[in-house]
Simulated assay, not measured.
Amino acid sequence: MVHVRLDMSNPDNQNPRPELDENEFIECFSTPLKTLYAECKKLEAEGYAIDARVLTLAEGIEVARQFKIV
């Protein structure tokens, strides 16, 4: 997992497009961190595969929210 900061006022950064390998399907979208877990669960229910690293991050944020850690 990589953490980067982007200048979203730069037009080149406003519509990211993945460079896909053959037979690869990746959809890019943004969601607020506070709804990341719910969004992951919704997408999973729709049949999308969620990268384990993203889901683990989302679960950690959700647990912290439930226990009022953050």
Rank of each mutant, 00 (worst) to 15 (best):
C28V: 15
I69Y: 08
V2Q: 09
L36Q: 10
M8T: 15
R5Q: 15
G47D: 12
E24S: 09
E27M: 08
L55H: 11
F25E: 15
G60F: 08
T35W: 00
H3F: 07
Q14D: 09
A64I: 00
L6D: 09
P16G: 03
F29C: 08
D7Y: 01
M1D: 14
S30A: 07
P18S: 06
A49T: 11
N23G: 06
L43H: 12
C40A: 06
C40V: 05
V70D: 11
A38G: 09
L55S: 08
E39Y: 00
T35V: 06
A45I: 04
T31A: 10
F67L: 15
V4A: 14
G60Y: 09
P32W: 01
D7W: 00
I50F: 00
V4L: 13
S30M: 01
R65C: 03
N15M: 03
V63Q: 11
K42T: 15
G47T: 11
Q66T: 08
G60E: 14
M8V: 14
F25Q: 14
R17Y: 11
P18K: 00
S9D: 13
L43Y: 10
K42Q: 14
I26A: 11
E44K: 06
N15A: 07
L6Q: 14
E24V: 13
Y48H: 14
I61M: 07
F29E: 10
L36P: 03
E39H: 01
I26F: 03
M8R: 08
A64N: 09
E46I: 03
E22C: 05
T56F: 06
L57A: 13
V2Y: 13
E39L: 01
L6R: 12
E24M: 09
E39W: 00
I26E: 12
Y37N: 13
Y48D: 12
R5L: 13
N15G: 05
A45Y: 04
S30W: 02
L43P: 05
N10V: 03
K34P: 00
E19D: 13
K42G: 12
N10S: 07
I61Q: 08
R53Q: 11
Y48V: 11
V70A: 11
I61Y: 08
E59T: 05
A52I: 15
G47M: 01
T56Q: 14
N15L: 05
L36R: 04
T35M: 01
N23W: 11
V70C: 06
L33I: 10
Q66L: 08
L33E: 15
F29G: 05
V70H: 04
E27A: 09
Q66K: 11
G47Q: 02
R53S: 15
F67I: 08
E27V: 14
V54C: 03
L33H: 10
L33K: 11
V70M: 07
L33R: 12
N23M: 12
I50N: 01
E39R: 02
L36N: 07
K68L: 06
L6P: 03
R17K: 13
L57F: 04
F29R: 04
T31H: 01
I26Q: 08
A58G: 05
K41W: 05
A49G: 12
S9M: 07
E59W: 01
